[in-house]
Computed example of a mutant assay.
Amino acid sequence: MLIRELTEEDYLESMKLSEYAFQYKVPESDIPARLDRLRNHKVLGIWDEDTLAAKLHIYPLSIFMRDAEWKMGGIAGVATYPEYRRNGYVNTLMIDSLKRMRNNEQIVSLLHPFDISFYRKYGWEILTETKKITIEKKDLKFLEPQPGLIRRFSKETHNEEIEKVYQQYGTQFTGMLKRDSYWWKQHVYDEDSQMAVYYNPDKEAIGYILYQVKDKKMEVQELVALDHEARIGLWNFMCQHDSMVDKVTIQLTSQDPFPYFLKQPNVKIELHPYFMARVVDAEECLRRFPFLHENESLFLHLEDSHAAWNNGSYLLNMGELKVFKEKTGGQCVHPPKKGIHLTINSLSAILFGYKRPMELFEMGYLKGSKLEIELFEKMVPILKSAFIDFF
């Protein structure tokens, strides 16, 4: 089974497969721009003679792990024509993508799942939830006036101030995408998007909403606020639309305090799992992770059924990491049996802050003594995962 990276001559075939698999049609006028975007991807394909049978895209991106940046491979566009399904093509592409991402130093990977259980088999785990709240017109009640002001922008007038607000916000979390200006213009804004930015009295941009108003509905696609002043100022701006809309929907990170502080917090709230994440290179991730170093050591025995290089035992020892892996044709020092046994899924959930070690232990996902789990709980800082983009 031959995997080949697509060249520009193959991009039209890739687009046709996407159209068939995901049931949409690219307008003729949009085809050149669509094909041009593929230059920023690595597209892997499996061919049947001259026919592209299956494909997978890898976006070369980076994410914030709080104030650090990690290279990330974004998986997207996984598709197969029906006549080639159940032949193991996607399985082959997924495993090959892990090898290529590791070789490219993309130490973690994110994707948006069509089915969570499918990607869990390959080691990806839930990264975060998205929270959508729906507010009826009658509940658009102003809060106390704020001293700042709102200015509106569009895709054409987008500026660096907005990007700085997002970056400051993103470094509060694990998993948030590092955006450049190209990403903002190509992937964040759409034709109907508007941007309302809140400035404090010192004329500093400290929050924004990306939104649309149409058909008597205001849809807030992003709300980013660096403090509560900005959050209230942006809420009051939404309330200013009370003569124009019948309802407001807001997409939020799951940790956002909306709607607790509203006059009427009893609103419709929908919480859904969103993106998934995976550790691609466990050794590198464990070296970079900001463990809180206790005066004790702890062994992690890791199992990864699709990335063999991650299998092994890792000793966390007061700021140092020692690795024990099986060697072929040589003698290997074996670690003790004590320690925590876990899969790559559980390690991914812990390092991104989606689940705590004790939570996973109580659900049976971590194996070890209660004392070892309690120590691991102390060593892992409390983190908040989030992701508000799409690819």
Rank of each mutant, 00 (worst) to 15 (best):
L2E: 15
I3W: 08
L6N: 04
Y11Q: 03
Y11L: 02
E19Q: 11
V26Q: 08
D30N: 08
A33I: 01
L35E: 03
L38H: 08
N40Q: 09
V43E: 09
L44M: 12
A53W: 02
A54T: 06
A54W: 07
K55Q: 12
I58T: 05
M65E: 11
K71P: 00
V78S: 06
Y81Q: 06
G88T: 03
G88W: 02
L93K: 08
M94L: 14
I95L: 15
K99Q: 13
N103Q: 12
N103I: 03
N104A: 14
N104V: 04
I133Q: 10
E136C: 07
K137H: 02
L149M: 11
S154Y: 02
K155H: 07
E156H: 09
E163Y: 12
E163T: 09
V165R: 06
G175P: 02
G175R: 11
L177I: 10
Y189I: 07
D190T: 07
D192H: 09
D202T: 10
I206G: 00
Q212V: 13
E219L: 13
E219Q: 14
L223K: 11
A225W: 01
L226G: 01
H228L: 09
E229M: 09
I232C: 05
I232P: 00
L234S: 00
L234I: 01
W235R: 06
S243D: 10
K247A: 04
D256F: 01
P257V: 05
K263C: 04
Q264S: 12
P273V: 05
R278V: 06
R278I: 03
V279Q: 07
D281V: 03
N295I: 11
L300H: 08
D304V: 02
S305A: 15
W309C: 04
N310F: 04
G312F: 02
G312I: 07
S313K: 12
N317Q: 14
L321N: 00
K322N: 09
T328L: 10
C332T: 13
H334L: 15
I340Q: 06
N345M: 08
N345I: 03
N345L: 10
A349I: 05
Y354R: 15
K355W: 04
R356G: 12
I373F: 06
K378G: 10
K384R: 13
S385P: 12
D389M: 11
